[in-house]
């Protein structure tokens, strides 16, 4: 129930921010659309299901900044490869997915796709299959750099080496 309340608050804020027109009729439509979305989410049973408290804390902005730096770095690398396509050596990489929550697994897969040079091909319960453009690109995954960062985001303890 708590999650449904927060969802409603977010939806109302979002609607007020995007709309910009505050006349009675339009406001009524806004209330109707918020209620519709709330009902749909409850019917889909996604409210609270995918709730992982740590993911929505202060760690998220830090993770985004880190991801931004990674995106810039891998973009520069792929841009260099674009001008010498004979240098690429595409490969399939398989890594473990050591996370508890499904949200963290999805974040892992999406971040992998979001950094150019690696694309998630398949994500199962305990492993991830990715296509990487070359050795340097695949190292983000094989060295576990990304996995450690997502573990930190999830709030899990670091795995022993």
């Amino acid at each position: 129930m708590r999650e449904a309340f927060f969802l409603t608050c977010w939806l109302v804020l979002l609607w007020l921010a995007i709309s910009g027109v505050y006349k009675p009729v339009i406001l009524l439509l806004g209330i109707a659309s918020v209620m519709l979305v709330l009902w749909l989410s409850l019917r889909m049973k996604v409210v609270g299901e995918e709730h992982a408290p740590a993911i929505f804390g202060w760690r998220l902005p830090v993770f985004w900044v880190w991801t931004l730096v990674e995106i810039v770095r891998s973009n520069l690398h792929v841009a260099r490869l674009t001008f010498s396509p004979e240098k690429i050596s595409p490969r399939i990489v398989t890594t473990d997915v050591p996370f508890r929550t499904s949200v963290a697994k999805v974040v892992y897969g999406n971040t992998c796709t979001l950094t150019p040079g690696t694309v998630t091909l398949m994500l199962t319960r305990d492993k991830l299959v990715a296509h990487a453009l070359d050795q340097t690109s695949s190292e983000t995954l094989t060295s576990g750099r990304l996995a450690r960062k997502v573990l930190w985001l999830e709030g899990s303890p670091e795995p022993e080496k």
Binding site: I71, T82, T115, P116, V119, H131, L133
Partner: peptide
């Protein structure tokens, strides 16, 4: 896909 990724992100 990686080329498309460059235009989609940075």
């Amino acid at each position: 896909l990686h080329g498309a990724g460059v235009t989609d992100t940075l």
